[in-house]
Simulated scan of single mutants.
Amino acid sequence: MGTVTLGVSIAVPEPYGSFLQEARAGFGDPAAHGIPTHVTLLPPTEADPALLPAVEAHLTEVARAVRPFPMRLSGTGTFRPLSPVVFVRIAEGAAACSWLQKRVRDASGPLVRELQFSYHPHVTVAHGIAEEAMDRAYEELADFEAAWTCASFSLYEQGADSVWRKLNSYAFGDGGTAVPPQGSPADEPASAPFSS
């Protein structure tokens, strides 16, 4: 029957999501319109379609254990020369994203996988394009700022046309607007502050 390609991510809300997607297209990235602007929690992962109910149940449980938290994007960064990527930095919320992605990939669930690189939450704005265009993305978005309360993540499937489509969203906790305690440095592992 084959496999499906799944991904889990936090969507960057409007108007920021469309702005960054259009910017990515403007830099000449051909993948821009097939990938909603996001912060990855689970990179593209092959799965048996029969596992989808278990995946949905697992993600529901992960989301229930988290409270909404503040997210803030600020400025740009790059993974070059290791990887041809320019991204918008996560200035607040990185620790919560790290906590979440570990639980999404937890050994007790159906989405277990190793990562090619250490997890570093970010919002890609250019990938695998000409160096000059990568430089332009890095410079033109250097002053970009955005902030919102992150209250959910979503499961996506990549189609045969390479477009990512949302299958479902998972609200955190009871879907309320509680914010976790502040004070966890973004570069330290988060544990209790983000669980209910």
Rank of each mutant, 00 (worst) to 15 (best):
L20A: 08
Q21M: 14
E22A: 12
E22F: 09
E22I: 00
E22T: 11
E22W: 09
A23R: 14
A23I: 01
A23Q: 14
A23C: 13
R24E: 11
R24S: 11
R24T: 11
R24Q: 10
R24C: 04
A25F: 08
A25G: 13
G26Q: 02
G26R: 03
G26L: 06
F27G: 02
F27Y: 15
F27I: 05
G28C: 05
G28N: 05
G28L: 01
D29E: 09
D29I: 03
D29A: 01
D29W: 06
P30Y: 10
P30K: 00
P30H: 02
P30V: 08
P30E: 13
A31Q: 14
A31W: 11
A31K: 15
A31H: 13
A31F: 10
A32F: 05
A32H: 05
A32S: 08
A32I: 10
A32E: 04
H33C: 00
H33Q: 12
H33E: 10
G34Q: 08
G34A: 07
G34C: 06
G34M: 09
I35K: 01
I35F: 09
I35N: 09
I35S: 09
P36W: 06
P36A: 09
P36M: 09
T37I: 06
T37Q: 09
T37W: 04
H38T: 03
H38C: 01
H38G: 02
H38Q: 01
H38D: 04
H38N: 02
V39E: 00
V39Y: 02
V39A: 07
V39W: 04
T40H: 03
T40E: 05
T40K: 04
T40M: 07
T40P: 08
T40I: 01
T40V: 07
L41I: 10
L41E: 03
L41V: 06
L41H: 08
L41Y: 07
L42N: 06
L42E: 05
L42Q: 13
L42R: 05
P43I: 05
P43D: 10
P43R: 12
P44L: 12
P44R: 09
P44D: 10
P44G: 07
P44A: 11
T45Q: 14
T45V: 09
E46H: 13
E46T: 10
E46P: 12
E46R: 15
A47Y: 12
A47K: 12
A47N: 10
A47R: 15
A47V: 13
D48Q: 13
D48H: 12
D48N: 13
D48K: 11
P49W: 12
P49K: 10
A50Y: 06
A50F: 11
A50Q: 12
A50L: 13
L51W: 08
L51H: 04
L51C: 00
